[in-house]
């Protein structure tokens, strides 16, 4: 009995140290837990983001058809070559760049201006802050439909207001003309987007040390010079950050164009994404649409990297 017991006692450490099972399990749990927690999100990301991106690149090299029994011949770079010879792409690109060049600076300036006004003790500034930010949290689809109604040819609010001031009936077909159609798209985008840059700048301005501004004031600086020498340098990281995100957003403009003008008349207000969408779902040129989207992704990625580098340099400085 004694010898048996002692053998058992002696053997146990060699075969299985006391507590080894739970320690090993603990180690496994510690390493595995983060991966297990990440898995649902990673799975969704892989299925709905990563796979479509690669599939899109894949499709862009074939003449791909949605019907299962039709052959999808490999066409190489021809879809990409077609992009550079397509006059409609030229219009869509111009409209996209124009949209970016017009809406981004205006959103930045208006957002900064509103933030500057509302950081000071303006009466009812809480209400103003809410009013400016509300459009940001509303749906693009709803807002686009509302603006399509406001600038509608028949019974639109814009025409009604102009008629009231003009004293006679004015009927402008805002959405059916290139420049007015584009202008409506810019207006809705600025109106909805300005609240976001406003909130960003508000936070940045709150972070400018009051001592610095007062020091500049005592040093004899006028208000414009205080902005130039103290405020702007202090909020530069935010300015860069807001620019980067607005540029990415503007490159991907879609909903407001799709709903208000639908890219019309004759594609004159179309942007790259509405054109790609039209190619895919109106003309079933899925491969060509995939090539446009792929090229856009590369350009936007390049732009983003460039801007993030600039931002880092600014922050370091």
């Amino acid at each position: 009995m004694d010898s048996k017991d002692s053998t058992l006692v002696e053997q146990r450490p060699a075969v299985l140290p006391p507590g080894a099972v739970s320690r090993r399990r603990n180690r496994f749990t510690r390493i595995a837990t983060p991966y297990l927690l990440l898995m649902p999100a990673a799975f969704l990301y892989a299925v709905f983001i990563v796979y479509p991106i690669f599939r899109q690149f894949d499709i862009s090299f074939f003449n791909w058809h949605i019907f299962p029994d039709v052959a999808n011949p490999f066409v190489g770079w021809s879809n990409y070559i077609r992009i550079f010879h397509d006059p409609a792409i030229r219009t869509a690109s111009e409209n996209t760049v124009l949209f970016l060049v017009i809406t981004v600076p205006i959103q930045m300036v208006l957002g900064l201006f509103a933030a500057a006004l509302l950081t000071d003790r303006l009466p009812g500034r809480g209400l103003w802050r809410a009013l400016i930010f509300i459009p940001v949290v509303t749906s693009w689809v709803v807002v686009s439909y509302v603006f399509a109604y406001i600038f509608g040819f028949q019974g639109g609010l814009a025409n009604a207001v102009i008629s009231l001031f003009a004293g006679h009936t004015v009927r402008i077909d805002w959405l059916a003309q290139t420049w007015t159609g584009n202008a409506v798209i810019w207006i809705v985008s600025i109106w909805k987007g300005v609240g976001w840059s406003f909130i960003m700048f508000l936070a940045a301005l709150d972070g400018v040390p009051r001592d610095l501004v007062e020091s500049a004031r005592v040093d004899g600086a006028s208000e414009p010079r205080i902005w130039r020498h103290v405020v702007i340098p202090n909020i530069r990281p935010t300015i860069t950050f807001v620019t980067v995100l607005l540029v990415i957003g503007a490159s991907q403009v879609f909903t407001q164009v799709f709903i208000t003008t639908g890219g019309g008349p004759f594609g004159s207000t179309s942007v790259l994404l509405t054109y790609a969408y039209q190619q895919a779902f109106s003309f079933f040129n899925f491969s060509y649409a995939a090539a446009i989207a792929s090229l856009m992704a590369i350009v936007v990625l390049g732009l983003s990297i460039l801007q993030i580098r600039l931002m880092r340099r600014n922050v370091d400085q």
């Binding site: 040390p209 001592d211 610095l212 020091s215 500049a216 020498h229 340098p233 202090n234």
Partner: peptide, 9 residues
Amino acid sequence: FQSYALYPQ
């Protein structure tokens, strides 16, 4: 100023 208020840039 107590914080010196030097312009960081």
